[in-house]
Every structure is written in structure tokens, then in C-alpha cells.
Design a protein around this nucleic acid. Structure first.
Length: 639
RNA sequence: GCACCCGUAGCUCAGCUGGAUAGAGCGCUGCCCUCCGAAGGCAGAGGUCAGGGGUUCGAAUCCCUUCGGGUGCGCCA
């Protein structure tokens, strides 16, 4: 991997950066953040859950283990709408043939309001078809429910989602895209289900990179003795300059400039040691960077409840180190202080520089204090856990950070558990893969450099404008509306493309494909939603009202089943911290609506049928808009 | 060297707490606009689930192994 790409990748891995000490948000802002939506008095489970409960009752009555009674949507629509495979699993324990078990379940089936007794196929699969009555009730519930059929969590938790993490020494680049997109979605999903959630930017504003940039400035000014000169320089500092300075000096260190490295380490230690001069310089850099970061996040539709950074945890570090020391967890090692996290017997083989292989503990110890006396990022992460436990008192902290940092988080989490700062299962790394270029390696510009996030968004906006013009959309829009729609299309394209893949795998960034208005893309989903809005607007103009839902046509059944599936997708996304389940649902719903739209005329129909179809269309729009919102995607009024 | 992840249709990807004929989008072939937005719908062709072995009534899914790719491995974050 070229060094530039490697540097970009590693820089993108952690969202760390500035902080806003002094601003009011230290712990107050989070507490008055949007409250979870009120839970409706009445909730209704989805059909799969209702089926599973009914089937579990039958299993229990027959003396079969109810845990194998789960019912899910069928993958053989020709045989049924829902299926249960449990008869095969429990047959051996029951000492019967799967077929016999299935037959006894079918014979015992009594939830006839939900479905007639299941048919049996193959070796013992149970196939169910929902009664029109049950399906209609469910669809009507979804249509009337403010949560569109979603169920809140049973036990509310306090959750901090750590994502974003740009480095203040430079602007945001493509490496920050996934953390922002996935983290934002995870935050919304958790909050929507009723948890109390804080999104924290966790800016990277406190490590070696700050000492490095300070050192570069020292070289530029020939020292910091001239106060007026320094002051003027800091006032004139721009992000562009910062972005040019950092990579240049990072490269020098990387290429073996020991002098720069050592001076930067000392500067880092001085900053952390409270040097007023270093603090002043740091503050100027921080402020310049912060303004740009906020702009970039805003253009992505990403918002935080806590705009904190590594530096905010700094005041806790001395006390924490003392505490760790008191607990006997620290050891001196080559001038540094480390905390061992491996359990007895956990080792790995390691090749040394001289080629010899030694057996060492695994995971590696956490480096808490460097030989220079400064804090490392693991130290800061550990202190941040202490801070969050004190301020937000979370039940769970989710770290939405590049998968490549898995080892690091394992070290930090183990250290936190050993020190008693948090329980191991309260800390979870939500890792994701890299965003790659057409060649399958981490994304970079044609010149081989790192693409700035702002430039990426600019390219996407331009592509969106082209697409809109090609399709003759927006000719009658005001300039403002056209720009707004183009940006929404661009954002939807990028976010949906990202979130429709499982977060753990890497994907290839292909703007042309993402921006297509056809197929499984963000723009297609926006189109579907906008088309429904258009229909409902026309209905309103004609003073047509939605009425009770009545399901008759096959396409109406399919749409109702799709609407029913929302909660299952939501719960999967929540449990696995994986928004792609919701992306998949959005697409399935849009397709089901398209089939319905083609086969079941809405406005051209009449009376009760039209009322029902309008209700189905409105329910679809509500749920689709909500699902997209959980993915962080905004739908325009028209396009 | 050691560890983790990945290898599914021409392409991009789902599926992997084992279950019926392995799915979707794009691309390809063919139908469907006097009718609410065809940015759509319908149908079809296309796959030794990288290879081999094992467990099981049953494996893309679990275990072992080979090959191929990615990533990580103490004073960067």
C-alpha cells in the first residue's frame, strides 16, 4: 500500500479531535437532547412474532421445546407466507419423525383467527397463510401507529455512541465518511426505539499530531520568542494551511526524521503538561479546524449531542494514572508505563526485527504513559470511559470506528474492566470496513492523495445536478429548491450505498452506480417516496379521504406484508448494530409499493376501495420516510 | 512470523444462532405507457457458494486444511 494511502487510512480510523471545554455542552447539553419519542399506549407485535407465540404455545402443549417454535417469513412464497422449521429440530429429542411432529402441531393449531392450520411440506416444514382479517388488522395498525408498526425496547438503556472522530490537525476526508454515516444511523435507531442516546464526536485533538503541528509552526516562525509575530500568525491561520502542514511533517517523521519526532513528542508532552504557550497555539488550531468540521458534518446531516474531544478527557488522566498505579496495574517497561491486559496463557508468536521469533502475551499491553511522559490514545480512550461513566452514566458505549482498530479497543476495554471503570460487556466496538476505490484498495484521488470530504460531497452534488437535468426535473424549481433537491439526492445516494452493505465488509465507491435513478439506490427510494407524496397531494386537492383498509388484491397483500416486516428489520438493525437491515427493508417496501401502484389504481378507483388504497399509500409513505430517516436520509417534497 | 476478516451469477453485494428450488441490483433477452410520475412493472437466461476433507437426516452457513485477497501486530491515531 502506498504510504499516502496508509497514512490516510490510519488517520481515518479514529474519530478524535477538538473539544469544546468552556462551551456549555460538557454534560448539560446531552441531558436536554431530544427526548425519546413517547411510547404509544397500544402496541402490536408483527405477524412473525404473533405466529411464533402461537406456535410456541402449541409446542409447549405437545411437550416440545418452544425455543424451536420460531416462525418467520417464508422463502417459498408458493407454499406459504410464513414458515416454521422447528419440527425437524425437535423431532430427535421427541423420539418421533419430523413429519409426525409437524402433523401433531398442525392438528393442535388453534389460532385460527391468525391462520388456518398450517400445511406440511417436505420432511416436516410448516407453512402458514395469514388470514385476510389478521393481515388487515395489522396493516390498519401500522397505518394508525405513529411508530409505523415499530416496537420500542423493553428495557430502556443509556447509550453513548462514539463516532465521527476527525482529527483537528487536518480536515475531514473520505475516511470519515463511514463512521459518520453508520454512527449517525445507529444513533437514530437506538434513540427511536426508546433508549436515551448521546452521540459524541470525540474529536482527535490531543495526541502526537498536535505536537507535530506545533513543531512545524515553530520551524516556520523560527521559534516562539516573538509574541506579536506568533499572535499575528495564529490569527491568520487557515484550515488549508493546517491541512498542508500536518501531512508534510507526518511524512518527515515517517521517513525517519528523529529530530522532528523527538521535538514533536516533547511539544506533545508540554501541551499535555499545561504549558500556556502550547495551549494558546493549540486553541487557535482547534478553533480553525472545528469550524470546518462542523460545516462538513452539517452538510452530511450528521449531528452530535456532545462535541467533545480527546482533550476533554485530559484533566482526568493524572488522577486515573494515579488510580491505576494504586491498584497495582501499571508496570514500568523501557521507560514507559504499561498495563497488561492478556490473561494467563493468552500468547502469540511474534517476529522480531532480527528475525527471531518469540512468544509474547496477547493482546499487547496498553501503553498508558509514554517514555516522554505523555498520554497515548489508549490512555485518552480509557480516561474518556471514566468521563462518560461519570457524566452520562451509560449502560452501553458503542464505538463506531474502523475495523482495523479492533485490537486497540480490545486492549482499552480489557484495561477498563481490569481497573473497574466499566464492565467488559458495556463497551462494544462497532467496526466497519474501508471504502475502496475501483482498484479495491482504500479510496484515493486520481493523483493518489486523500480526497477531502468536502470535495467528495461537491462531486456528488454536481453529479446529482446532472442527473436531475438529464431527467428534466426541476426546470420549474427555484435555484434554492433545485440545489436543495440535488444535495438531498447526492446525500441519499452516498448514504444508501454505504448502508445497504453490511458495515463489516469493505465496498467499492462508485459514484455513477450509487447515483443511478434505477435499481437499488438512494435516488430510487427518494423517487418512490416523492411519487407517493405526489399522489397524496393530488388526492388532497380533490378532497379525497383515506378510509379503512381492506385487502383484496394480491399486490395489496404483498404491500401489507412488507409494511408488517418493518419492526423485524428494525430489531435486527438494533440488535446487530447493522443499519443495512433497514436499507434492505426500505427497498423491499418501495418494490412492494411499486407492484401495488402498477396493479391497484389509487386515484382512478372509487369509493371504499380508493379510501383503502389511499390509506395504504399514506402508511407506506410514513414508514418509508421513517425508515430513510433512521438511515439519515431526507426526502424532498418533489423531484 | 502470528492473529483477525474476506473469497456466493459477467459486475456490485445480501444470505452464514445449519433446513425446502442459494437471493437482489446492475448488465443481457423479450413483453407492458389512450389510465395516479415507465426514475416503473412482468417474464427469461446466467452460479462446481474458491478447492479438499469432516460433523449432520440435512452445510453457502459449523470444524479442519490448501490456495487467493485484505487488515492488524507498544511509545501515530
Amino acid at each position: 500500500m502506498p504510504s499516502t494511502a496508509k497514512a490516510a487510512a490510519s488517520a481515518s480510523t479514529r474519530a478524535t479531535t477538538p473539544k469544546c471545554r468552556g462551551s456549555k455542552n460538557f454534560c448539560g447539553a446531552a441531558l436536554d437532547a431530544r427526548p425519546p419519542k413517547p411510547h404509544p399506549a397500544k402496541t402490536m407485535k408483527d405477524l412473525a412474532s404473533t405466529f411464533s407465540a402461537a406456535n410456541a404455545a402449541v409446542f409447549a402443549k405437545l411437550g416440545l421445546d418452544p425455543k424451536h417454535a420460531d416462525v418467520r417469513r417464508s422463502d417459498r412464497p408458493d407454499l406459504g407466507e410464513f414458515q416454521a422449521n422447528g419440527a425437524l429440530a425437535v423431532a430427535k429429542a421427541a423420539g418421533k419423525k419430523p413429519q409426525e411432529v409437524a402433523q401433531s402441531v398442525a392438528a393442535e393449531w388453534s389460532a385460527t383467527e391468525l391462520s388456518p392450520a398450517p400445511s406440511i411440506a417436505g420432511p416436516g416444514f410448516l407453512n402458514f397463510k395469514v388470514t385476510t382479517d389478521a393481515l388487515t388488522k395489522r396493516a390498519q395498525f401500522v397505518a394508525d401507529d405513529p411508530l409505523a408498526g415499530a416496537t420500542p425496547v423493553e428495557r430502556k438503556r443509556r447509550v453513548v455512541v462514539d463516532y465521527g472522530g476527525p482529527n483537528v490537525a487536518k480536515g475531514m476526508h473520505v475516511g470519515h465518511l463511514r463512521a459518520s454515516i453508520i454512527g449517525e444511523s445507529v444513533k437514530r435507531i437506538y434513540r427511536f426505539r426508546g433508549d436515551e442516546v448521546w452521540g459524541d464526536a470525540h474529536f482527535g485533538d490531543w495526541g502526537f499530531q498536535m505536537g507535530l503541528v506545533i513543531t512545524a509552526l515553530e520551524d516556520e516562525l523560527g521559534g516562539f520568542d516573538d509574541e506579536a509575530k506568533l499572535d499575528a500568525r495564529l490569527k491568520a491561520l487557515t484550515l488549508d494551511q493546517l491541512e498542508a502542514i500536518y501531512p508534510a511533517y507526518a511524512k518527515r517523521v515517517k521517513e525517519g526524521d528523529i529530530d522532528v519526532r523527538d521535538r514533536a513528542r516533547k511539544a506533545t508532552a508540554a501541551l499535555q503538561g499545561g504549558s500556556a504557550l502550547h495551549r494558546t497555539i493549540w486553541k487557535a488550531m482547534h478553533d480553525v479546524s472545528m469550524a470546518a468540521q462542523k460545516r462538513d458534518f452539517a452538510s452530511l446531516g450528521v449531528d452530535f449531542d456532545l462535541w467533545l474531544g480527546e482533550s476533554d478527557a485530559d484533566p482526568l488522566i493524572p488522577g486515573m494514572v494515579e488510580d491505576l498505579d494504586k491498584k497495582g496495574l501499571l508496570e514500568d517497561d523501557q521507560g514507559a508505563r504499561i498495563l497488561r491486559v492478556a490473561n494467563p496463557g493468552e500468547t502469540k508468536k511474534k517476529k522480531r526485527y532480527d528475525g527471531s521469533v518469540v512468544e509474547v502475551e496477547s493482546p499487547d499491553p496498553l501503553l498508558v504513559v509514554s517514555s516522554e511522559g505523555s498520554a497515548m490514545y489508549g490512555t485518552t480512550d480509557l480516561a474518556t470511559i471514566v468521563q462518560r461513566m461519570r457524566d452520562q452514566k451509560p449502560d452501553l458505549i458503542l464505538y463506531c470506528v474502523d475495523q482495523r482498530q479492533a485490537d486497540h479497543f480490545e486492549q482499552v476495554y480489557r484495561a477498563a474492566a481490569k481497573a473497574g471503570y466499566a464492565q467488559r460487556d458495556q463497551l462494544e466496538h462497532i467496526g466497519f470496513g474501508t471504502m475502496n476505490g475501483p482498484d479495491g484498495t482504500p479510496f484515493k484521488t486520481r493523483a493518489g492523495g486523500v480526497l477531502k470530504l468536502q470535495d467528495l460531497i461537491g462531486q456528488a452534488d454536481e453529479k446529482a445536478r446532472e442527473r436531475l437535468r438529464e431527467n428534466e426535473i426541476g426546470a420549474d424549481f427555484s435555484k434554492e429548491e433545485f440545489e436543495d433537491v440535488a444535495h438531498k439526492v447526492a446525500t441519499a445516494a452516498i448514504k444508501f450505498a454505504d448502508l445497504s452493505n453490511f458495515r463489516g465488509t469493505s465496498y467499492i465507491f462508485d459514484l455513477d452506480r450509487f447515483m443511478s435513478f434505477e435499481g437499488k439506490t438512494g435516488p430510487y427510494l427518494l423517487y418512490q417516496a416523492v411519487r407517493i407524496k405526489s399522489i397524496l397531494r393530488k388526492a388532497e386537492e380533490q378532497r379525497l379521504k383515506a378510509g379503512p383498509i381492506a385487502i383484496e388484491h394480491e399486490s395489496e397483500r404483498a404491500l401489507a406484508l412488507a409494511l408488517d416486516a418493518f419492526d423485524g428489520a428494525l430489531r435486527a438493525a438494533y440488535d446487530k448494530k447493522a443499519p443495512h437491515f433497514l436499507a434492505e427493508h426500505a427497498f423491499n417496501l418501495a418494490q412492494a409499493f411499486s407492484g401495488f401502484y402498477t396493479n391497484c389504481p389509487i386515484l382512478p378507483s372509487e369509493g371504499a376501495v380508493r379510501g383503502s388504497r389511499l390509506a395504504l399509500a399514506a402508511a407506506t409513505l410514513k414508514q418509508l420516510t421513517l425508515t430513510l430517516d433512521l438511515l439519515g436520509i431526507d426526502v424532498p417534497e418533489r423531484m
